[in-house]
Design a protein around this nucleic acid. Structure first.
Lengths: 182, 182
DNA sequence: GTCTATAAATCGATAGAC
DNA sequence: GTCTATCGATTTATAGAC
């Protein structure tokens, strides 16, 4: 699913970088076209609206999350599933750094995630695994903390000059404190 | 300092809400004017550029943080200072919810915080208190986790229907795990 | 798949009246 | 402090040639 032509892949890649730097609302199709080195019309030939580009970007970022989610859900125990998922989320976020951060940070993207059913479903699965069993109102807070901490820390100025390996291990160590395992 | 006329206060209040909902880049001066019920020209009479509005909004949000920071820095011990500051940050974030969230989330606002000296100074003081003594690269990660967790959780969909009191106490409980006290 | 050219709307910003 | 009116630039988006 989501088979991209090379031209579409170029649009998505450029959009991802620009969204992270200027925000979705602050990124125009002209900026995307300039970054690729083509005209606006060429971009429109791939995606008919700006929303479609945002959608395609969201799908790419969420695809990695779904992969980690699938292997987590296949785990024998709930605690092991949570361990696998959080580890996968950290890996994804660290690898892409500011790229991944926009997913949970940009106000426009947050709206997208809430309004589009498929995205909501994925986020619900993520939350279910992180929360383990119970889902009382209070039990939902740790899931929000985990998601926020991962997405926020990887793009935080304080972690900018850390290597991927150092950031990953220290972030894992911190999140471990929130649960006991991770 | 930062004495606002009633008209300026209306602009800031409207901008704060719109920035949180649509992002700074996705908010036009026309939208702000419409929200207040005046024309664009009236808004321009208060602030000559969009950047000045962003600046004014940032100052309002940061003013509360500086107050919490001052009382934290007056604490007798570093660990007590951290406890006071994190508590203050939680209070601020919970009270304003999505309002406060934009400070550390919007890409445009992040740029502002990094480029304007006064804001950088405040953030450096916050980080110093949260990190306690040492400031090795790895020691900076917990500070980033704390800031991200607070700012992200209060606007996370999972915490949307929690009361302020419940959100505050559960968030405090989670952050306590990251340190030992809080 | 990419281009030129263009439409219609909106953008940030200004001038000047009240 | 707010208005009308306007500027020039930029926005999303389309038509049609290559």
């Amino acid at each position: 699913m989501t088979a991209h032509t090379p031209a579409q892949a170029r649009v998505i890649e450029a959009a991802l970088a620009l969204f992270a730097e200027h925000g979705i609302g602050g990124t125009s199709l002209q900026m995307i076209a300039d970054a690729i080195g083509v005209t606006k019309a060429a971009v429109y030939h791939q995606y008919n609206t700006k929303d479609e580009i945002v959608l395609a970007v969201a799908e790419v970022v969420l695809a990695g999350l779904e992969a980690a989610l699938a292997s987590a859900e296949a785990s024998p125990s709930p605690s092991r599933a949570r361990e696998v998922l959080i580890g996968g989320m950290i890996d994804l976020a660290v690898e892409r750094r500011r790229m991944a951060g926009i997913l949970q940070r940009d106000p426009v993207m947050l709206r997208f995630l809430e309004e589009h059913e498929p995205f909501r479903k994925v986020m619900e699965r993520v939350n279910r695994v992180v929360m383990g069993g119970a889902s009382t109102p209070r039990a939902r807070v740790p899931a929000a903390v985990v998601a926020s901490a991962i997405a926020g820390t990887v793009i935080h100025p304080l972690g900018r000059d850390l290597s991927d390996a150092a950031l990953r291990s220290e972030l894992t160590r911190q999140l471990r404190k929130l649960f006991g395992s991770v």
